[in-house]
Write a protein that binds this DNA or RNA. Structure first.
Lengths: 126, 126
DNA sequence: GCTTGTACCGTGTGGTGCAATGGTACAAAA
DNA sequence: TTTTGTACCATTGCACCACACGGTACAAGC
């Protein structure tokens, strides 16, 4: 498969990587069990930093689209096609929007919401 | 009553104003119906900008601690003492914390939560 | 020795929001 | 005319964060 990243594009590089791999899985260009290039190799091919590719792989594995098997490499997850259509982000947006609207309707200032949010995000567990 | 603002303090000036007025209400130094100094006058006394005082008054009125009656001035709200102990902020923190924890437990990255939050806060209504 | 994924230290850039400041203007009422 | 609260234009300094980058190191296995 061909992966192209656009440095000038509006989307972050790691996000472009994720999207293109998900697209390839969804269109059956990448089938379960297929080996992916290593982090270092892909970074070298695309002229990216290792950590940028590593971030994309880490998030793809969290979504169960790929499987990393340590020193043996990285592979497409058996249920990749099903999992890559799940949009975790959409669920987050909907649920957050519901909460924020409740605050705004109660007269809470946007600034106050941001302050509370900022405080909470700096704590590991509440 | 005496109001003192500390420019070097960690708290914003408008927040110091709010806190001191609430404290005065809670300790009965300011009773319902009492007239407060006008925005311009208080700003002049404390050597602050009009808008800083106006912001404090606006938030105090939202919490029903004071009542602004247009050209007639600003007064302590009849139910000020009860309302100034209501902590809207605490409710916001609790509810937000609940939502954020649900995200984190589902494997959502803090960064992703921040992105979604940032996107939502830039929209007036969702 | 080489590769694998992973983890840690750090730097720099650009975007964004907040607090506070300045000035100007308005309608309503004393 | 002056005072009231309120609204709009603007700017400054500060702080946080996302993104991407560079380097180094590790254990596990070929």
């Amino acid at each position: 498969m061909n992966i192209i990243v656009d440095i000038e594009g509006p989307d972050p590089l790691f996000a472009q990587l994720i999207q293109q791999i998900k697209d390839a899985v969804f269109s059956d260009q990448l089938k379960p069990g297929t080996a992916l290039p290593s982090i270092r190799q892909l970074a070298n091919d695309l002229d990216l930093n290792n950590k940028t590719v590593a971030k994309a792989y880490r998030l793809l594995e969290r979504d169960s689209v790929i499987q990393t098997k340590g020193y043996r490499g990285t592979f497409i997850h058996p249920d990749a096609k099903a999992n890559c259509s799940i949009n975790l982000n959409e669920w987050v947006t909907d649920k957050l929007s519901e909460t924020i609207n409740e605050f705004r309707n109660s007269g809470v200032t946007d600034s106050e919401i941001r302050i509370a949010f900022g405080n909470l995000m700096n704590k590991r567990n509440i």
